[in-house]
Write a protein that binds this DNA or RNA. Structure first.
Length: 450
RNA sequence: CGGGGCGUGGCGCAGCCUGGUAGCGCGGCGGUUUUGGGUACCGUAGGUCGUAGGUUCGAAUCCUAUCGCCCCGACCA
């Protein structure tokens, strides 16, 4: 993309309403604009990141064998009356009446809808297990939306639902989700720690929240530092293997890690003192096994081998996709702006022309732009007639992980400068070498370019 | 939902107390400057002061209502 043709309304000054760094930077970098309290328009740069995250989530879900679909944002109240949640949900649910006086709602989640679809279409245990998911906008009429996309009223979320014949099978689905979520976050360049979560009225211990450690996190968390040393890495997981998923579940959930909701001081004190940590965290996902809660309430049964109907065991699992952008920025920024992990950078390489209108620099930038584009590296070429400082500042603000600087001084020696946003280190090399180097940096990450 | 605060050009703010018909910085636009970290200079456009009502000769300023937004606390991907 040539910056002169793009839509990137960056702000020099911070809008007064933004309190936390991710919100400020998203506004300043021209990623979002507020439409009303807790509701945002996604400008091109923000939308690009959102789609990238969405893509990663899709890929990892499908790798785990989960099936994508799409349910509507607006739902009929009838199903929610059937499950009993129409009254339980309270004011967080946005209720709407259509022209015929029918009660509708903007879905805060989709258990009812998916259960309805399931019960009308699946009748035999032979069709199980199944996990269906979608990535769709949700609306929860928060009392107090804040922190930009971190706690919006309208938010983009992946929610998935597993249907299994019994608890044992459903718990495998639970573990499988844990593994796929770990992988999803790691791929985005984030460390998200699974922490035991409150299961609410259903009880049991089968819910985990995934938290990204960040100073501005809303939850207080307590953990054994051993857990932050863990990583899934590039191990090849067979998602159908109960043993493998169970082993990873055990590996990641055995060290103490809890939010203030489930924190147990006595248990925590058993962790060696040097490894006892408390911090703040941002919740970016949650997995849940809830047994037959909805299948009982809504009559979602399948016939078992003996021909008798049995309620299916279900779980639901969510990833806050729009919130993840906030979490990513909270975890990756400095005073100058965002520092995107390479996998989720909206533009992989920035090209800065220090002398716009200079024949040599223009030609060199053009060569870089073509070369990087040909490799699928989605460069952002700042071809505006601006001072160097303004161009650098823009690239830093929007967080391009790599920047190639082209100036008359370097070109005289046949070199351009490749700079890492994260380390700030620069290296001079030829144009061809710069293109090659960028290609190497992003090798294996092509699939997620949008 | 309880407590607090704020609405003045695109953004950040001043003016309000002590009514006299709107100002600053940034940004925009047109030039000059061809520049190595948000450059400098010249010129220029842009605001029924959130909305409605009231007081007054006169309201951004005082009063009332209303809408919106933000912050602090209890709840949530």
């Amino acid at each position: 993309m040539r910056l002169s043709r793009y839509f990137l309304p960056v702000l020099k000054e911070t809008p007064a309403e933004a309190q936390i760094v991710s919100h400020r930077l998203m506004l300043r970098a021209g990623m979002i604009r507020q439409a009303s309290a807790g509701i945002y328009s996604w400008l091109p740069l923000g939308f690009k990141v959102l789609r990238m995250l969405e893509n990663i989530v899709h890929e990892e879900q499908q790798r785990a064998g989960h099936i994508p679909m799409l349910m509507p944002t607006l739902q009929s109240a009838d199903l929610w009356r059937e499950s009993g949640r129409y009254d339980d949900y309270g004011k967080e649910m946005l209720r709407i009446t259509d022209r015929h006086g029918r009660d509708m709602l903007y879905g805060p989640t989709n258990e009812e809808l998916i259960t309805d679809i399931f019960r009308n279409s699946v009748g035999s245990y032979k069709e199980l297990p199944k996990t269906l998911y979608h990535i769709q906008w949700k609306f929860r009429d928060e009392v107090r939306p804040r922190f930009g996309v971190m706690r919006g009223r309208e938010f983009f979320m992946k929610d998935g639902y597993n249907f299994d014949i019994d608890k044992e099978s459903a718990l495998h689905a639970y573990n499988r989700h844990l593994v796929s979520y770990l992988r999803t976050y790691e791929r985005m360049g984030l460390q998200a720690i699974p922490m035991r979560a409150d299961t609410g009225p259903i009880g049991g211990d089968h819910s985990h929240e995934f938290l990204v450690l960040a100073k501005t996190g809303e939850s207080e968390v307590f953990y054994d530092s051993a857990v932050t040393d863990l990583s899934l890495g590039d191990r090849n997981v067979d998602y159908d293997s109960v043993e493998q998923c169970q082993a990873i579940f055990d590996e990641f959930t055995t060290p103490y890690a809890r939010t203030d909701e489930t924190h147990d001081e006595a248990l925590f004190n058993q962790v060696p003192e040097a490894r006892r940590k408390s911090a703040r965290g941002i919740e970016v996902g949650q997995i849940f096994y809830f047994g037959t809660k909805y299948s009982d309430a809504m009559g979602a049964t399948v016939n078992g081998p003996d021909g008798k109907p049995v309620p299916v065991h279900m779980g639901s699992h969510g990833i806050g996709v729009s919130r993840l952008i906030g979490a990513l920025i909270e975890a990756n920024h400095d005073d100058n702006g965002i520092i995107w992990p390479e996998a989720v950078a909206p533009f992989k390489v920035g090209v800065v022309n220090l002398k716009q209108g200079g024949g040599d620099t223009d030609a060199a930038c053009e060569q870089l732009y073509q070369g990087l584009s040909a490799r699928g590296l989605d460069p952002l070429y700042d071809d505006r007639n601006e001072r160097a400082g303004a161009k650098f500042a823009t690239m830093d603000l929007i967080g391009c992980p790599w920047r190639i600087t082209v100036g008359p001084r370097g070109l005289k020696n046949g070199v351009v400068e490749l700079t890492s946003r994260r380390s700030g280190e620069s290296e001079e090399m030829s144009i061809e070498a710069a293109i090659d180097r960028c290609g190497q940096i992003y090798a294996g990450k092509e699939a997620i370019f949008v």
